[in-house]
Design a protein around this nucleic acid. Structure first.
Ligand SMILES: [Zn+2]
Ligand SMILES: [Zn+2]
Ligand SMILES: [Zn+2]
Ligand SMILES: [Zn+2]
Lengths: 141, 141
DNA sequence: AATGTAATGTTATACTATTGCATAACTGCG
DNA sequence: CGCAGTTATGCAATAGTATAACATTACATT
């Protein structure tokens, strides 16, 4: 992995957490991650441990919380100082991150119009991803 | 109130729930609403009751869930068949709904580019609202 | 070794939400 | 009216998500 820019020291636990989030092909809940890390560690970790890991990784932009799923993913982009836009598939549970392309500006402008100072934003789109659409189409459903 | 278009029958409980959401000057959690409705009813309602009320109201577009707060607000717009954009103030806890102005189209277009069929979206902006900004400014902080 | 800091462990608890089944209220009909 | 079908509500238990508070460990500096 290559995410060590920002002065975050990579401990074995953090290493394992990032690795599991990367391996997963969909967002993991905190307790799912907890179970996997416990298995890896060979002992039962507590909820605070995994929530602290997730907090730390999220603060460094390495992991992201999906608000509408109560779940967490690894951010797949190089620069970790951005806000993500996620496409969340209702069929396969997958989360895809897409490029911003002006949405940030548009949103910031509209917030400004309301006199609102924006510090964070959540943009999550639910629906059906391309692979799942073709799968459904060929069902003849 | 004037939200009876869509074939939702207004029972006393639903009436009270809508009323409390309107009166509140910020989003209410399910359990906050539960407490208020219990007080109004003069007996203790159970969690399922309030979650069912909220489900129903959300399905009819009368109430909305704020994903990043685990809380609920009454939608303040006439047409209840839209997706909302919320500005959430970190100072006062207030939630303001703003007009869409092309965001929906932009987002749908970008989803389409990814071959994604969009059925729902969440857009929530956190920051500081206009009144709270002026309040902070005049603090000399 | 003594100190300080960051990280992790542990226990308990708070908060959010749903399942499953029972009962009540309302509707339409014979 | 009596009844069936439907919608709404009541209720108990439990599942799922997250944090508080405090103890301990690991590691770097002196
Ligand atoms: Zn990202
Ligand atoms: Zn899919
Ligand atoms: Zn709205
Ligand atoms: Zn405010």
């Amino acid at each position: 992995m290559a995410c060590r820019q920002s002065g975050l020291q990579m401990t074995p636990l953090r290493e394992a957490a990032v690795s599991e989030l990367w391996r997963a092909e969909r967002p993991l809940t905190a307790y799912e991650l907890l179970a996997r890390l416990s298995e890896i560690a060979g002992r039962n970790l507590g909820p605070p441990t995994v929530y602290r890991l997730l907090d730390t990784l999220c603060q460094h932009g390495i992991a992201r919380r999906i608000e509408s799923l109560n779940a967490y993913v690894a951010c797949h982009r190089r620069e970790h100082d951005h806000e993500c836009i996620f496409l969340l598939c209702q069929e396969c549970g997958g989360a895809t991150e897409i490029e911003d392309n002006g949405l940030e500006r548009l949103l910031r402008k509209q917030a400004e119009t309301a006199g609102f100072e924006m510090t964070r934003r959540v943009v999550e789109v639910s629906g059906v991803c391309a692979p799942c659409r073709t799968a459904v189409d060929s069902d003849g459903a």
